[in-house]
Design a protein around this nucleic acid. Structure first.
Lengths: 146, 146
DNA sequence: TGACAATGGTTCTAACACGAACTAAATTTG
DNA sequence: CAAATTTAGTTCGTGTTAGAACCATTGTCA
């Protein structure tokens, strides 16, 4: 219980920074014809042989309940498919179809380029500073509850 | 088009930091019986005479279409109410009821204390560092599109 | 003043988010 | 081996989200 350092400006800065990123990124993704979670899944599955739904949920931080619906919609559009797991009949492997791989090859580089434009003026030192700050702040929230 | 400084670790650090905050914060808010947007609105309206829905949306970054529903649910539970604006019949003033003010007095300090716990070991210098990093990163996203 | 644009809110649709309940298929244990 | 527990996914209920269409009211301006 030290003196109450004024933490709200830090929290607000984090929220505003994230929302600026999210707005910038989501607008581009939607212009490419996907929703952000859909892009997230396509980007995760691209150039892989597929993975179980649980693994996919872990990597994308999408809850399993939500994942069912998102994969359903990707499957409806012919971009993803579910195939049986060889040894565990509880598992479903989710993977991109040919059409889904083609989509990935189109939208992933496009979105990366869109993001790269933000950082054209940033030095490696700046990235180091950003990452160090973000990781230490993240640590505060992770151990804060303990 | 300088060399492609590797920006993805920075973006990932931002997303992970924000999600750590969001998870930490939202769990507490839900335990207090509110959803995050509901808390946001109660916190914004607390200790004020109320404000128009547009103003409330601006402060909370909730779009007007969403705001209608969130305020509806707060009103259903007796925490908020809509009253007519004196001079502009298009406007509705949204404000907390007595019961809503009592809720605010209970949950707002509780949640602030919950957040403060994350920062018990943080110095003022650390906050300065975090805020500087977050604000410069935010700027990258804001002018990135231009 | 009378058309016309801008503003404030609500409604609608499609999609996502979370948690809880549920089914089926492993895995663990006694 | 059989019962109990865990794990994988789906389904369901409530709430949030963005954007577009819509209505009413105001403001502008020729």
């Amino acid at each position: 219980m030290t003196e109450p350092t004024d933490f709200m400006p830090t929290v607000q800065a984090l929220v505003q920074c994230y929302q600026a990123f999210e707005a910038y990124s989501a607008a581009d993704i939607r212009a490419l014809g996907l929703t952000p979670p859909q892009f997230d899944i396509v980007a995760t599955l691209g150039n892989t042989p597929g993975m179980t739904a649980t693994e996919l949920g872990d990597k994308t931080l999408i809850t399993k309940g939500t994942l069912t619906g998102v994969v359903d919609r990707l499957a409806d559009r012919g971009w993803a498919e579910r195939v049986a797991h060889g040894s565990d009949r509880r598992c479903q492997i989710v993977r991109l179809t040919k059409s889904g791989e083609a989509l990935f090859a189109k939208v992933f580089p496009a979105h990366m380029a869109h993001l790269a434009a933000c950082f054209s003026g940033a030095s490696a030192a700046e990235h180091t500073r950003w990452q160090a700050a973000l990781r230490s702040l993240e640590q505060a929230f992770r151990k804060g509850g303990a």
